[in-house]
């Protein structure tokens, strides 16, 4: 298939666009269109499409522009809220990560100091309250905890951190919902 534009094509297109073809078309151009395959195709197709456009446009059932305007406003607002929410969520994640890091460092230092505190407490108890030397603090803790080797001074901050984190997670989840 070769692409050879007819020199009269622009003229025919202009007449078709104005709706002047074939009534207001010069006789010689009409003769040319009937003889030229390219122009004949152009005229046939354009007239068929123009008719279809007029008829389809008349059959359209249009929604109210106000409704579309309102829907667009709603979508815009939601997009804006989402756009604003993104940095806030990032900041929350960052704050949570920093808190977790600090908690881990704190727990690590407390784990080493915890045992010292215990010995210091026992020493204090022996020197300041010698009458209470029979007082055994470990008796207050559950036996399973003592046998597992976990120090209560380590366990309490862990539980406190877990409670704090679950609170944060619940808050974030409810906010997202």
């Amino acid at each position: 298939m070769t692409l050879r534009p007819c020199p009269h094509e622009k003229e025919v297109v202009a007449l078709l666009a104005r709706g002047h073809y074939p009534q207001a078309c010069p006789a010689e151009l009409r003769t040319h269109v009937s003889a030229c395959r390219s122009c004949a195709d152009l005229a046939l197709v354009t007239r068929a499409f123009q008719t279809a456009r007029t008829e389809s446009a008349a059959a359209a059932h249009l929604a109210s522009p106000g409704l579309l305007w309102w829907r667009a406003q709603l979508r815009r607002r939601n997009a804006a809220v989402e756009r604003i929410g993104k940095p806030i969520l990032g900041a929350q994640i960052f704050a949570l990560s920093v808190s977790l890091l600090f908690a881990a460092v704190f727990l690590a230092t407390q784990a080493t100091h915890g045992l010292r505190w215990l010995s210091w407490l026992q020493q204090l108890q022996k020197t300041q309250f010698p009458q209470a030397s029979s007082l055994h603090l470990e008796a207050l803790w559950p036996s399973t905890l003592i046998h597992s080797g976990w120090s209560p001074m380590v366990l309490i901050p862990i539980l406190a951190t877990l409670a704090l984190l679950s609170g944060v997670v619940i808050y974030l989840a409810s906010e997202k919902q």
């Binding site: 456009r53 389809s56 446009a57 008349a58 059959a59 359209a60 249009l62 522009p65 106000g66 305007w69």
Partner: peptide
């Protein structure tokens, strides 16, 4: 809003005709 209403009145029917004829599904 008003400019959109005017634009919609002028452009909606040709757009619908395009979509309906090209898709074949009103």
């Amino acid at each position: 809003s008003d400019a959109f209403a005017g634009f919609y009145q002028r452009s909606a029917r040709p757009l619908w005709a395009y979509l309906a004829r090209v898709s074949g599904d009103p």
